[in-house]
Amino acid sequence: MAVPKRSFEEAAEWLIRLQESPLSAQEQSQFDAWKTKNRENARAWTRAQQLMGQVDTLPKNMATAILNRPEDAGRRLAIGKLAILLAAGPTVWGGYKTVQSQQWTADYRTTKGETKHVTLPDGSLVKLNTATAFDLAFDQQARTLALREGEIEIQTAAVNSQQFGPLNIYTREGRLTPLGTTFTVRQFDGFTQLAVLQGQVEAVPKLADPMNREIIQAGYQARLSSQTILSNQLITPNTTAWLNNMLAAHNMPLKRFAQEVSRYRSGVIRVSPEIENLPISGAFPTTDTDLILTMLTRTYPLKVHNHLGGYWVTLSLA
């Protein structure tokens, strides 16, 4: 005899309830009563226990990689307009330039103040920081992620190399090729910053000799121009603070600090010249930029003028 849908729905509701917090004595007796109310409920609950038991036997990382693998249809859908551009151009750079010149049509993007997690068709996880945009082209030859604006963290997935080619991240300055890894990439105005949290990443400036590649190790952050690797040093806290929705500063000149805050805030923050170089230190919540400004006034000799309902902010000497 078939178990009615209602029993499954109630079993599902109990599963959800049980995963939230321990049952009170009253809830426990309600639950016991439900299980024994009739044979259908009992059978639905037996299935629920079997399902939970089986899910528990799976190795976590393996199951995530495999069950989250992209479907064939999903993969075809993922080969979007960028792939066509890439295929049409003589080189990847040719295609990428075309995309760069387009305005805000990126496949994945966040607005100011927004952060987002996405899972790519190969199962890799990407966190987008504020005001970020990237395009994606996945096909059998290569997986291409073109960062157009902003900052991302990538945790690469273990994938089938027959189904997917190598993963490459392109910025305005060059190509980054992860070697099984977690890392962050930020597109600055004029350079790319890479920070490797796990594994290694190969960094190749766009105009450098491709043979002259450099491997950035875990724990290091590097800056790339289109010609060369500008620096390669130990990671500083302000590079990775955004992963916890924080902005970290250590003796950062106020003018630069204001630029950092502006990434998370609509409108303009103007710093009057006499305090441009005021050194700012501390950790600030990027989810509340009004609070950041208030915190500044409490610690430093400056005042905040709000105009246009906070759209135009001026920081000046108190």
Partner: peptide, 23 residues
């Protein structure tokens, strides 16, 4: 058939990349 095949490939790939002495 495709779902099973892609799952088996993903599995083999994973096992090749992360050989686990526990299994």
């Amino acid at each position: 058939f495709y779902r099973r095949k892609s799952l088996e490939e993903a599995y083999l790939e994973y096992v090749a990349l992360f050989p686990d002495p526990m299994t």
